[in-house]
Design a protein around this nucleic acid. Structure first.
Lengths: 355, 355
DNA sequence: AAAAAGTGGTGATACGAATTACTACACGAG
DNA sequence: CTCGTGTAGTAATTCGTATCACCACTTTTT
């Protein structure tokens, strides 16, 4: 059935069907009507295609400028992390779902990973991304230069997340942290909290900055006092720190990562501080599946939906339905009341024991 | 730095460096020595490359060169299952790892999924896999016809797993269930077990058949009696069934899936039968990560390694280092002694109470 | 002195598909 | 009988890179 050696190309089909290569191309790109190719010819060509098992050559198509139905996915961290309680997997679920719906295939750019494990689009010498019609990029590492270069080359891509410096150059989808933090602060105010603390990671990244900015903004707008944000490693979030919160009349703590949430839970337990009885806690990131995160109040980034929207936006971009300045915010699920409770009335100074 | 619009190509560099495009290509493909291009010319060209921010066009390269550095991955079930306690993820970890090492990219064939959720290579008319240089296929669904067709078309692919009817047509990697079951049966015999039961799923698939065959074979070779294999849904593995095992002097049960292991644990607990005190249990499949599978004796399929080897074999196949009849067995980790124990001496008939 | 080998390149072409710009013919209207 | 309008195509060109077949000149070997 299949000729040995070479794979079939359009000219093979053309010969078999007794037409020119041009005609085959016209039929395959769905412009048969406007070029008045009769049904009989179309049928002959389609039969030949089936007989030879023809599949368009993706490289040739993209070289010429056409579509090849490939959507790239490039993450600045490993796609399938070995620490498999995997943050990215959920994005990929969404990306794959949407790809299936749109009938395109996904290219996971593994070759963009250097020997040292870092990932770079241009690092490997060639911009492999060009093999695909466009790409979805994600990752928290700061590679603004690459993004800028990619955009300046006119390569169509969508970013999941936001980069202040270059975000105007490309469409992106991003969780609506501003609304989320407004909801959190409102929620805390509504149940009666009077003073909030914010504990961030020592390592900073863009989403974390967004959350902190939003927190500061809404705490101010809602006129709820806060302590100065602290940036701690989990080890530093110890009993002393918890004691200080209590001393400072802090009744609720926002922590930026699940590692900090674990540390705070442990420290509070050691210090005999009940959560949420004496101290409410909200986690601003979700942990791995294996942790019982439902036991903490936390905001939930719609990772699956972000993946889906990113693919949808990319297709829109390719079809010219949107431009590079199209940005989308996706709602973030507000926290449950697991570790948010009405604070106890502050003890009077008379009952307070000073060490 | 980057010119607006078009990206630089070799002829741009050539013009800037005052040489021909051929020379640029020669230098870039590292054949400067053998073509006696002096260092001075190389330097000029490299400078021009840097100045223009040139990056080779991957599409043009693969069009010219044949290979495009894409490795397809096709699973007969969703690649990123929504039920994310994901069996396939571990294979993909291995596949991606190896792809990174080999410097190739992965194509996840999402477009091969039909509207009904089933996946078929030829479903869309054309064999989309041809887009990649070769592919790794996995999945337990029985699509032998497709595999056969694919092989007959000369498409290079490697299967993870084994299909009796068509396995001679392609290279595959497969867990060494025969050795694994030999080890299990030996292990059970060595600690003193006298009679084994085998409980399989009602839904049969190829790996399960392989395990059962191996079990039967080795039980016979080692002259250890067994009950007739039973194929049950987890719900049917109830206290009655457990009571029957005891009545039949069965001291160890091999279950084919973690669902059955859960059912057996529960049923035994309800029936007051201690595991492994009164009944040893070995699970022949591993469950999702979230389950504490380490609490059961189970054999462990080296899924990551299977993924890695599959990619390695595919590259070997593409480079002509192996042929279609190359098959590899990968060792399966034998069970721990978590739920394997020396059986209690069988009660004498005098002490047995008949209902 | 002629032949061979080395140096430093260049021009033309092929890869496969898409597109632009044609051609050749039939038919009806004016 | 000629003009216009479909109909049913095709030839030539393009995308960016790699490679093959050369070329012109110099140096070394026979």
């Amino acid at each position: 059935m299949a000729k040995e050696g070479r794979t079939a190309r359009q000219s093979d089909i053309a010969r078999l069907a007794g037409v020119s290569q041009t005609t085959v191309s016209i039929i395959l790109t769905g412009r048969a009507r406007e070029n008045s190719i009769p049904q009989s010819t179309q049928d002959r060509v389609m039969a030949a295609i089936r007989e030879l098992g023809y599949v368009p050559n993706a490289a040739a198509r993209s070289l010429r400028g056409g579509r090849n139905g490939l959507i790239g996915v490039h993450t600045y961290e490993a796609v399938f992390p070995v620490t498999s309680e995997d943050y990215y997997n959920e994005f990929l679920v969404g990306i794959e779902e949407k790809a299936v719906e749109m009938g395109v295939d996904l290219v996971l750019f593994a070759s963009t990973q250097g020997a040292d494990g870092t990932r770079s689009i241009y690092g490997s010498g060639a911009n492999r991304l060009r093999l695909a019609d466009g790409a979805v990029l994600l990752g928290v590492e700061r590679n603004d230069d690459e993004l800028e270069r990619l955009a300046s080359e006119g390569y169509p891509f969508v970013f999941i997340g936001r980069r202040d410096t270059v975000s105007s150059l490309m469409p992106y989808v991003v969780p609506d942290y501003d609304s989320a933090l407004r909801d959190v602060v409102t929620q805390l105010k509504d149940v009666g909290h009077g003073k909030l603390a914010y504990v961030g990671n020592r390592m900073r990244n863009n989403p974390q900055e967004d959350r902190l900015t939003a927190f500061t903004r809404h705490a101010e707008l809602l006129e709820i006092p806060t302590t100065t944000p602290q940036f701690l490693s989990p080890a530093d979030l110890d009993t002393d720190r918890v004691a200080q919160f209590i001393k400072d009349d802090v009744t609720a703590v926002l922590v930026e990562s699940w590692e900090l949430a674990v540390a705070l839970s442990d420290a509070a337990a050691s210090a005999g501080i009940a959560i949420p009885g004496s101290l409410s806690m909200v986690c601003l990131d979700i942990g791995p599946r294996s942790l019982a995160v439902d036991n903490w109040s936390h905001i939930q980034v719609p990772r699956r939906e972000l993946g889906r929207r990113a693919v949808a936006l990319l297709m829109d971009l390719l079809d010219g339905r949107i431009t590079n300045d199209h940005h989308e915010l996706l709602p973030v699920t507000p926290p449950s009341f697991a570790t948010i409770a009405r604070p106890r009335p502050a003890p009077t100074s008379a009952t307070r024991i000073d060490g």
